[in-house]
Amino acid sequence: MRAAAGFTGRANSTLTCGDPGVPVPDALAVVKGFASEHGIKPAAHVVNGSAHEQAIADAGWHVDLDHPGGAESLVMTGLLEKFAEGEAGSHDLPGWWELTAGSEVSAAQRHVLGSGENVCFASISENGTVVAAVRGAVVEDLLHVARLAVRPSHRRKGLARQLMGELAGWGLRQGATTCALQVAEHNEPAIRLYSELGCTEHHRYRYWVPAVS
């Protein structure tokens, strides 16, 4: 169970994997209680086709079609050596936060994005302005990629590909061999980019929420 003041779906939902140890409706009741206690919307992070998906539906929950990031997301993975180029620096710049998180950065945002022992904030600047940014975090041999963003005025110039290559280089030097990233199913340009870098779909997931009573 995860709560972070509503910032991102993953950080404010209950991951449903394995046996909850109680009937699914009882487990979902605990999810609702946890959400109420932390002031967030109750949500279950469910892998498509997983063992408990039907039981969650039978309990009266439904896919959150209004989720800001889209109803369904892909998890893609790939080998870093296929697209690593150079090495990104770790730049915790104000412009990085403004581009990836907004003009006013909350404590929850800094906690979610800044936590971890091996985190990289990479960016590309032009005339003192951050025009592209990405976050990477290495856990064991896996590089988690998140918050890839390019300003609209600088898209279609290869900046996202450049950043991914630099981040992959950094990840290799930290001992990672594989990357994992999550992308909304409707974000076709991003999916195309990651596919061109050699990443493939590992699985999909959706957020489920209780029916409004």
Rank of each mutant, 00 (worst) to 15 (best):
G21N: 10
L113R: 04
P210W: 09
H45M: 02
A137T: 13
A11H: 06
F7A: 07
R192F: 01
T8F: 06
E37D: 14
V47M: 11
V183I: 14
G69A: 11
Q162P: 00
S115Q: 14
A108S: 11
V46P: 10
L79I: 00
A11R: 06
H111D: 12
P23N: 12
E85L: 07
L148D: 09
V130E: 15
G169Q: 10
G136P: 02
V183M: 03
G136R: 04
A108L: 03
G78M: 08
V212N: 10
H111A: 15
P42K: 12
E37G: 08
R155I: 04
V212G: 00
A11C: 03
L142S: 01
V183R: 03
D19G: 10
Q182C: 10
L65S: 13
R151A: 15
D66W: 03
V63D: 04
D58F: 05
S36T: 09
G165S: 10
G9W: 05
A146H: 02
T8R: 09
G116P: 13
E87G: 06
G18K: 08
G18N: 11
E140L: 11
L15F: 14
E98T: 15
T77N: 08
G60L: 07
S153M: 09
P152R: 11
H186F: 13
L163Y: 09
E188Y: 06
V150C: 05
A108P: 01
A4H: 04
E81H: 09
R2G: 00
L163N: 08
A29I: 00
L80D: 06
S106K: 02
N127T: 05
Y207P: 09
C120E: 08
H154L: 01
A180L: 11
F83C: 03
E104R: 14
S50K: 06
T177E: 12
V145R: 07
A149N: 11
H91F: 10
V24N: 06
T177S: 15
L99I: 01
H67E: 07
R206C: 10
V75A: 12
A146W: 01
L99Q: 00
A190M: 07
A57Q: 06
V119E: 02
D141T: 13
E85F: 01
R192D: 14
P25Q: 14
G116A: 13
K82E: 11
S36Q: 13
K82R: 15
V139A: 15
P152Q: 09
R204M: 05
R156Y: 02
P23D: 12
V209F: 04
P189Y: 03
